[in-house]
């Protein structure tokens, strides 16, 4: 098995999709000749032509609105938004159109569009290259929201997203784009959506995380192990539709839940997770559910490492719930 970074794995997924399915097309700003600003689409235009890997004008509503039209007509477009921070011009097309087309046409039309976008902090990107807006999309019926945390998952989840019939917001933790290389299966490797992964098994406390917060949580769990605490880390992989089974099973087993995300706290996805656990598993809990999140402030440039949850902060939360 070849070793790949997340960027390479994503590129490999797109190459497999473009090769196997003539209806797959890639569109976005700088995705063609330049191969994308993060190089995810590097070489694809040379291999598949400028019709199937198309550079677009600088207009996110045009990219997503155009992708919707393509999908209605029968293609499977992968629309790249250069940074998720720039997705808002397309927000209307995503929320009002993409998400609702199947429902509002009573199943007559569907929109299998995958919107890929790098998200999250930790790369000195400042306010507009660092945000985590997943909650906006999780709040919208009709969208699936997928966030990988490893190269192999990135490939498998992207291919699974592309094989489905529903629109997917596919958020890529850009901070992990090149930090880790791992074995990635060749060819059509898929990882089913709505199936969480136990990233590290444990018995006394559950940490729920996704994307770039998974390695942070695993690191915290390792430190906790040094203190004799057995901590389980669940990587959600798909936020909507959520694998609530795995979440609840783990919560019931450990009786302690810490939730980690880098998005702001208020109405973040963690609130939904906390409510789920409270509604379904409160009798199994031995401690309050804690959230370790970004702050309810805009994303800071200089102070980004104070803003982002890190292993020590997660460990503090684990300590807190273990004290009960």
């Amino acid at each position: 098995m070849p070793q790949m970074t997340m960027v390479q794995a994503l590129q490999d997924a797109l190459r497999v999709a473009l090769r196997d399915d003539p209806t797959v097309v890639v569109l976005g700003e700088d995705v063609g000749r330049n191969g994308g600003v993060f190089r995810v689409t590097e070489g694809l235009q040379a291999e598949f032509g400028s019709e199937r890997v198309a550079d677009t004008p600088l207009s996110e509503n045009g990219i997503v609105g155009g992708a919707i039209g393509m999908a209605l007509y029968g293609l499977r477009p992968v629309a790249e938004i250069q940074f998720v921070d720039f997705i808002y011009p397309a927000f209307d097309q995503i929320v009002s159109e993409l998400a609702k087309m199947r429902w509002r046409s009573a199943g007559q039309y569907s929109c299998p569009v995958v919107v890929r976008a790098p998200y999250g902090g930790g790369i000195k990107g400042g306010l507009y290259h660092s945000q985590s807006p997943e909650a906006y999309f999780c709040h919208t019926a009709g969208l699936k929201v997928v966030i990988p945390s490893t190269p192999s998952d990135a490939k498998g989840l992207l291919l699974a997203s592309l094989a489905g019939e529903d629109p997917v917001i596919f958020l890529e933790p850009k901070r992990l784009y090149r930090t880790l290389k791992e074995d990635v299966p060749e060819g059509r490797h898929t990882v089913p959506l709505s199936m969480a992964r136990v990233a590290r098994a444990g018995e006394q406390c559950t940490v729920l995380a996704y994307g770039a917060m998974v390695p942070v949580s695993v690191e915290a769990a390792s430190s906790a192990a040094e203190r004799g605490w057995s901590v389980e880390v669940v990587d959600l992989r798909t936020l909507v539709p959520l694998d609530s089974e795995t979440v609840l099973e783990s919560a019931r087993k450990t009786g302690r839940v810490v939730i980690v995300h880098e998005a702001p706290r208020t109405c973040g996805f963690g609130a939904e997770l906390a409510a789920l656990v409270a509604e379904r598993a409160i009798t199994a809990l031995q401690a309050p559910i804690l959230r370790v999140t970004g702050y309810d402030t805009p994303f800071p440039y200089t102070l980004e490492h104070s803003y982002l949850p890190d292993a020590p902060r997660v460990l503090r939360a684990i300590e807190h719930v273990m004290a009960y």
């Binding site: 199937r52 609105g65 393509m70 209307d92 009002s96 007559q108």
Partner: peptide, 30 residues
């Protein structure tokens, strides 16, 4: 909206159908 006659479900949101028409035309061309 009626698939039988290829009219696409529109939302109430003014203008949103236009990039979609453009995208469908793009697909037809591809």
């Amino acid at each position: 909206s009626d698939r039988k006659v290829l009219t696409v479900a529109w939302s109430s949101v003014i203008g949103t159908q236009l990039p979609q028409a453009m995208g469908a035309a793009w697909a037809a061309r591809i």
